[in-house]
């Protein structure tokens, strides 16, 4: 496998739960997971040798993930711009033990670990069995439309206070 320049750390991915395999052929190549804190991550296969498969793990925003699935941005756009400014590289052996976790910056990735510029989504996602329980929906209402949105909710008998109780995250622009 390629030598990678990163900062070795201990990180436990065992609490992550799968939402879907976004690219699957006899096994996952790109998978969407959610952490115990509700953050969205991608597990992206990049390499293997006789002992391990290597994955890059990066936090993504749902809007960006939706743009990728909607073919508006490429996979390279996602991988090269992780939410945290860095990715994790992790090796997974045949017993599914995760080891040699490294923090790595996108600019330090070897070219073979980056998709091509035209790597737009051309696959079908395979949802996990319990994906519906884990799926979150993100709705962003521009500030100038807020009053109109609240009026619409009021008219359909769904007060904004109820929505605020349901929503775990809200973005206001």
């Amino acid at each position: 496998m390629q030598e990678i320049n990163g900062y070795k750390i201990e990180y436990d991915f065992s609490t992550f739960r799968k939402i879907a395999d976004l690219v699957y052929l006899d096994g996952p190549f790109l998978s969407h997971y959610v952490s115990s804190k509700g953050d969205d991550y991608l597990f992206y296969w990049v390499d293997r040798d006789e002992k391990d498969n290597r994955w890059l793990v990066l936090r993504v925003s749902l809007p960006n993930l939706q743009k990728y699935i909607g073919k508006k941005i490429s996979l390279r756009d996602l991988i090269a711009s992780p939410n945290d400014g860095f990715l994790y590289a992790v090796d997974v052996d045949n017993d599914l033990h995760y080891h040699d976790v490294k923090l790595i910056q996108p600019t330090s990735l070897p070219e073979e670990y980056l998709p091509t510029a035209d790597s737009f989504y051309d696959f079908e996602p395979v949802p996990a069995e319990d994906a519906e329980e884990l799926m979150t929906y993100e709705l962003t209402i521009p500030y100038k439309e807020r009053n109109r949105f609240e009026d619409i909710l009021h008219k359909i008998g769904f007060p904004i206070s109820a929505l605020k109780k349901m929503a775990s995250r809200a973005a206001v622009f």
């Binding site: 739960r17 799968k18 699957y24 052929l25 006899d26 096994g27 996952p28 190549f29 998978s31 597990f43 296969w45 293997r48 006789e50 002992k51 391990d52 498969n53 994955w55 997974v92 052996d93 045949n94 599914l96 996990a128 069995e129 319990d130």
Partner: peptide
């Protein structure tokens, strides 16, 4: 099948997520 290769290209044990019989098939 991928499930029988070493190292298998999987991220989690099959009893943690969807048990997918496709692991034992050939694409």
């Amino acid at each position: 099948p991928q499930y029988l290769l070493n190292p298998k290209r999987m991220l989690q044990e099959i009893d943690k997520g969807r048990a997918n019989a496709s692991l034992l098939a050939l694409s």
